[in-house]
Amino acid sequence: MSDTQEKIIEIIASFSPVDREKITLETNLTDIEIESLEFVELVFQLEEEFDVSIPYNANEVGKFKNVEDIVFQVSSIIEEQNGFKE
């Protein structure tokens, strides 16, 4: 796992009461108690951290279901918008 991916998971974990060690790529957001409003803040935190713009509309469900969805999509957005940041 790259440093970027590690950092994304670390940020996700900071919004959850569940320990970082227990969070894997397969973990569902609902299982680690990240509610919709917290998720909006999480997206903001990721944008701030990596200086990117993440297209996300809370009315469109199903785009980010588990940790892998976020890691995969956010990593490719970082690459696309910032080039090689690592």
């Binding site: 909006v40 997206v43 903001f44 996300y56 509309n57 809370a58 009315n59 469109e60």
Partner: peptide
């Protein structure tokens, strides 16, 4: 915008394809 609840095009309440 930051609240992520806005539709990018139009307002279509109660329709299945509504986007905010």
């Amino acid at each position: 915008e930051a609240l992520r609840v806005m539709a990018p095009d139009t307002c279509n309440p109660f329709s299945a394809d509504r986007r905010g």
